[in-house]
């Protein structure tokens, strides 16, 4: 009993504080803050996870290197930002540079992803999924260790985070603004705008272009698409490249995110979040990824608030909650929110 009491005391710090915090939770400004910050986090999770789900949906490949692509994006983005930003660079110029850097990282990593697909993933399509998992996990580890070596040699902190890159954020995005009575960090509003733009661009690509139609058809039945005269392997390369590029862009956003920042640890941490989003949403589903990113983002924001207000004195609460959501989803709806029973394959 005493042991249990001790454990509870470690987690729940103070009963009157709980009552006070729960009272504040019901306030509109608290709800607004949790929701808006949650949407900001959701936007970044979506940008990262959508590539993972598209790759699985079309190719049936579970890409365990996806987190490493985000990690590389955070570092490359950070290095480019540090190179172009000086102390006197104004806020709008910093944001403009950020957008250009995100575009450069996207282009670069899309090319890297396409090359990886052609050189490494393509030769093992016809093998069992275990080969793909081992290969992509291995690529992730190589990229992580490579980043550790390069950053250490360059005087950049490999972990916990490289603060130099985080310091390129304009003051305007670090400041808090009053929205619906809640005090919201500017960065999360910036992330929401970016998330909406990326989600719209991906949706338009999938639903309003012929190539997007091929990809959606290929996600259901790649063999049939091939029999219609469409080179589905080319579509695999395009999607793997785009997925890599999007993960890297997500990494560029994490560079400025106050709860993340560039770190070699992003490889595994981001991969886990991305997998949770993709599994809850339904493997291969764009709509599901969007919905699940919002659920995970808001849950993350809520549990971070619980920790910050002192109601729960357990810093790992957001991670635990998110994995709890994953477990619940797997029990209640194993195919995910919008998943179909079987997708992918080649």
């Amino acid at each position: 009993m005493m042991g249990t009491g001790f454990a509870l005391a470690a987690v729940v710090s103070d009963a009157p504080l709980i009552v006070d915090a729960l009272g504040r939770l019901l306030q509109p400004d608290t709800i607004a803050r949790i929701l808006i910050e949650g949407l900001g986090k959701a936007a970044i999770y979506f940008i990262i996870a959508v590539g993972l789900t598209l790759v699985f949906g079309l190719m049936g490949v579970l890409n365990f290197a996806h987190g490493a692509f985000a990690m590389i994006g955070a570092y490359v983005g950070g290095i480019l930002m540090v190179l172009v930003i000086s102390g006197g660079t104004g806020p709008f110029t910093r944001i403009a540079f950020f957008i250009v850097v995100a575009a450069v990282v996207f282009a670069l990593m899309t090319a890297v992803g396409s090359a990886l697909e052609i050189g490494l993933v393509r030769p093992i399509y016809d093998r069992t999924p275990m080969y793909q998992i081992l290969l992509t996990f291995g690529v992730g580890l190589i990229l992580e260790e490579g980043a550790r070596i390069v950053t250490s040699a360059s005087g950049i902190q490999p972990e916990p985070t490289w603060t130099g890159a985080a310091g390129t954020i304009p003051h305007a995005l670090e400041s808090f603004y009053s929205i619906l009575g809640a005090s919201i960090r500017g960065f999360y509003m910036f992330a929401i705008v970016a998330g909406v733009l990326v989600a719209s661009a991906v949706w338009l690509f999938l639903n309003r272009t012929l190539y997007g139609l091929y990809i959606r058809a290929g996600s259901e039945d790649p063999e049939m698409v091939e029999a219609l005269g469409i080179d589905v392997r080319k579509a695999f390369t395009v999607v793997f490249g785009l997925g890599t590029g999007l993960a890297a862009v997500g990494g560029v956003f994490l560079m400025w995110d106050p709860t993340w920042g560039p770190s070699v640890l992003l490889n595994i941490d981001v991969l886990l979040y991305a997998f949770v989003v993709v599994v809850i949403g339904g493997l291969g589903s764009f709509k599901g990824t969007l919905a699940a990113a919002v659920i995970v983002g808001v849950a993350d924001s809520f549990t971070t608030w619980l920790f910050n207000t002192g109601i729960v004195a357990f810093p790992g609460l957001p991670e635990v909650t998110i994995f709890l959501l994953l477990v619940i989803a797997l029990i209640v709806r194993p195919q995910g929110l919008y998943g179909v029973e079987e997708v992918g394959g080649h």
């Binding site: 012929l210 139609l213 058809a217 259901e220 039945d221 698409v225 219609l228 469409i230």
Partner: peptide, 13 residues
């Protein structure tokens, strides 16, 4: 392609 519309099934062909 069950999740595509009839028209999309024709378009993709």
């Amino acid at each position: 392609f069950g999740y595509l519309t009839v028209e999309e099934n024709i378009r993709v062909s």
